[in-house]
């Protein structure tokens, strides 16, 4: 009894949390990634103030104008300012990353916890469904779902979110299996705590760290997936700006107006690198095996 009282798990987690934040702040990749993400978040939130033009306002006499003093990133095929469209396009990309991964975590994590904790038939059913979804490549599944749901940013986010669920089921289940062998779980059971209390109070806090790492890395994939869906015409409806859709249009003018492709392309690369760097940093800081 005294052993259990001496090892209150939540307190341990809180202590670990502080040290992990300190470790995270010492990770250069996490800092660079964080700075990049922060930059894009600021762009997205303050787009209306930062962008020099209305991203959807065409200029019929400045079609595919090269970068110049008035339009730093040039204009597109309808004479719209590419810089403004890249800035506003941040909103779609970040929204897709955040919303779809949140959807995936909110659905995938509970299923993974339940599968790992209860095992047996429950585990078998959940794991087989997740395996079946994983058997279909992520982007192919997202494209199929988006095509089924119809083109819109909301549907693209749902499609990406659903496609990412099995990854989180797997991560949560694997961590739960490990956590359930720990003494404090046995102790909690011995204390007479119910399943829900053990799952939320003891298992969940220990599964969160790898889930957060996975979520950050999945956001990079989600941003790419949103761009891919938009490229295929399954994302944001025109004329709202989206980096993928901008690349699709730019593809037709690669020779004569390369700036139309260059800047949205660079934006996608930067944001994806940002999420990957911060994911790596979090992995180093939170993974107890490091």
């Amino acid at each position: 009894m005294s052993t259990i009282e001496a090892a209150p798990v939540p307190a341990q987690m809180r202590a670990a949390g502080r040290s992990e934040i300190r470790r995270l702040l010492r990770e250069p990749s996490a800092l660079i990634g964080g700075a990049i993400i922060l930059f894009f978040v600021i762009l997205a939130v303050f787009a209306a103030w930062i962008a020099p033009y209305d991203p959807n306002a065409p200029d019929w006499i400045a079609i595919r104008a090269a970068p110049n003093a008035a339009h730093w990133f040039g204009t597109d095929d309808l004479g719209r300012d590419v810089l403004s469209r890249v800035i506003f396009g941040t909103q779609a990309s970040l929204a897709a990353g955040l919303v779809s991964v949140t959807v995936a975590v909110l659905i995938g994590l509970p299923f993974g916890l339940v599968a790992g904790y209860f095992g047996g038939v429950t585990d078998m059913v959940i794991s087989r469904v997740a395996d079946a979804l994983l058997a279909c490549p992520f982007l192919v599944l997202a494209i199929a779902l988006a095509a089924f749901l119809g083109p819109s940013l909301q549907n693209a986010m749902i499609a990406i979110g659903i496609s990412a669920i099995p990854v989180f089921v797997r991560v949560a289940r694997a961590e739960t299996l490990v956590v359930c062998t720990e003494d404090y779980i046995a102790a909690a059971r011995a204390q007479g705590l119910g399943h829900v209390a053990i799952l939320t109070g003891q298992v969940l806090p220990n599964v969160l760290a790898p889930t957060i790492v996975q979520a950050t890395l999945t956001m990079a994939i989600a941003v790419l997936a949103e761009a891919s869906l938009a490229f295929l015409g399954l994302g944001q409806l025109p004329p709202a700006p989206s980096w993928g859709a901008m690349l699709d249009v730019a593809r037709q003018f690669l020779g004569e107006a390369p700036w139309m492709a260059l800047f949205p392309g660079l934006a996608i690369i930067a944001l994806v690198i940002g999420f990957n760097l911060i994911g790596d940093g979090l992995n180093s800081a939170l993974n107890p095996r490091h």
Binding site: N56, A57, P58, D77, L78, P151, G233, L237, P238, P239, V249, Q252
Partner: peptide
């Protein structure tokens, strides 16, 4: 959803908006 029609649709959307038409585009 082909390049030509997509451009035409967006140009019409923009021009018609000035007169008072709220054009929603649905590429398929």
């Amino acid at each position: 959803n082909a390049a030509g029609d997509s451009r035409v649709a967006q140009i019409m959307q923009s021009m018609a908006a000035e007169a008072g038409f709220d054009v929603k585009l649905l590429p398929m």
